[in-house]
Simulated scan of single mutants.
Amino acid sequence: MSRAAGRLKVGIRVPPCDRADRIVRTVRRAEELGFDSAWFPDSQLLWRDVFTTLTAAALGTEQIDLGTAVTNLATRHPAVIASAARSVAELAPGRFTLGLGVGDSSVAPVGLRRSTTAEMREGLTVLRTLLNGDEWEFTGPGGTVRSRLRDPHPAIPLHLAASGPRNLRLAGEVADGVILLSGVSPRTLAGAMDRVREGARAAGRVAEAVPLTVSAYCEVTDDIEAAARRIKPICATIARNGGAPFLALAGIEVDVPDVVDGVYPDLVHAEDWDTAVRVASAWVDDAAALRFAEEFCLFGTADEIARRLRALHADGVRGVFLQHVGSYDPPLDLIEAVGASVLPAL
């Protein structure tokens, strides 16, 4: 990455929710205010194509780091990802990170399943092989063929997003960096970091040398109670996706059914957020939402958020990227608030 590694790097998650040229204005504003990175999610039915948007961002900025958070190996073949990543990296030398995950909102709307740990391991191996310029043996209905990527780009860091223990260990073992999806709760974060370090040590790597980036919902506010009610769908989704034990460690008891009706396409990416909040309120009351905001998210005044960010860095976190609530508008308010009050406090 292009910025100094000796301090906490603060990034912003920017969904490609509008034309690429308009999204670039958002990224450029983040760059102006001192954000270190902009991370773009990949979900082909929810947003514009992530690599098209990254291309525009690479051409429209000069310093800010860029990355996928995250693309996947289910809707995109590893060879396609390798070519797209190489193409972006050429336009933003030293500024691009390829973040990979299991799929989630990319796979569910088209009836596919999330990638398994074994598939993630093989996919990362294929990507690294191709980006290094080496041949890979592909096997398909047409038979077996050995191929390579012309004009490779070996320097692209491959980061793995993970929350479960198997993928956390895999990330520590084989990835160039880890995107932790556990939020900023000290208890759950410590457990996630331990699994990453287990994987790194098992592979003979220096565990502390694997950079850790934490994703966290953030809002600069002096009314946490009101803000917390808006993130009930996020808390409910974490519980529904196997995170109930992590929530319980923080005293949040939430039991969400496997099937949630009435929200499209899902609670976290709901097109009608007010409806999602109402539906999630059946399982997440105001007290639980407040506890979730205080424990797992970065909600509070600028000084409070800055203090928590400094604590994360002291615990070994290399970077964070902040998320706003909502999927179909750029995080302009969050960029302005953090840029004006939190980043200067750091």
Rank of each mutant, 00 (worst) to 15 (best):
S147P: 00
R148M: 02
P211D: 00
C297W: 06
L131P: 15
E219T: 10
G172S: 13
V277Y: 06
R113M: 11
A236N: 11
V279K: 05
R291S: 11
E219M: 03
A79S: 14
G133V: 01
R166F: 03
V14A: 02
W47A: 03
S43D: 07
A69Y: 08
L249P: 00
A345Y: 02
R166P: 00
L160D: 08
A92I: 13
T117F: 01
R291V: 02
A244Q: 12
R95W: 14
D222N: 11
A58F: 02
A227F: 04
P109D: 04
S2Q: 10
E295A: 12
T188E: 07
L158T: 06
L298H: 06
R3E: 12
L100N: 04
C218R: 04
D104W: 09
F35R: 12
T26G: 04
D272E: 07
L168H: 07
D272Q: 00
L343K: 10
L33T: 04
L59N: 11
R13G: 09
L100R: 04
G140N: 05
H153K: 08
N72R: 09
F296R: 10
V80M: 14
L180E: 02
L312S: 10
G300P: 04
R3A: 13
L59M: 11
A282Y: 05
I81S: 11
G199Y: 10
W47E: 05
T116A: 00
L33F: 03
R310W: 03
L130F: 12
S83V: 05
A345R: 15
V254M: 05
L73G: 13
R19L: 13
R48M: 07
E135W: 04
A92R: 13
E119T: 14
D194V: 12
L45T: 09
V145N: 09
G34D: 10
T275Q: 14
R86G: 15
R128A: 01
R48L: 06
L112F: 08
V279C: 03
V10Y: 01
T71E: 01
A155C: 11
R187F: 01
D223S: 04
E32C: 08
K232T: 14
L46V: 10
I234L: 15
G262D: 10
Q323V: 12
S182P: 00
A89W: 13
L189A: 11
Q44C: 01
L130K: 09
K9N: 14
Y328F: 15
T55P: 08
S327I: 09
P257V: 06
G67Q: 08
S105Q: 14
D223P: 00
R187C: 00
S182E: 11
A89I: 12
H324V: 07
F35T: 07
Y217G: 06
F40N: 00
G99I: 09
G60L: 05
T61G: 10
F246T: 07
R150L: 14
R3L: 15
F35D: 09
A250C: 08
F299L: 14
L249F: 01
I179M: 15
R48P: 05
V126L: 15
G111T: 09
P78H: 04
R230Y: 01
V50E: 03
I224L: 08
S182C: 13
F321S: 07
T301H: 03
A250V: 05
E198A: 15
A288R: 06
V27H: 06
H77K: 06
A58V: 06
D223K: 02
L343T: 10
L189M: 06
V338S: 08
A175V: 08
R13P: 00
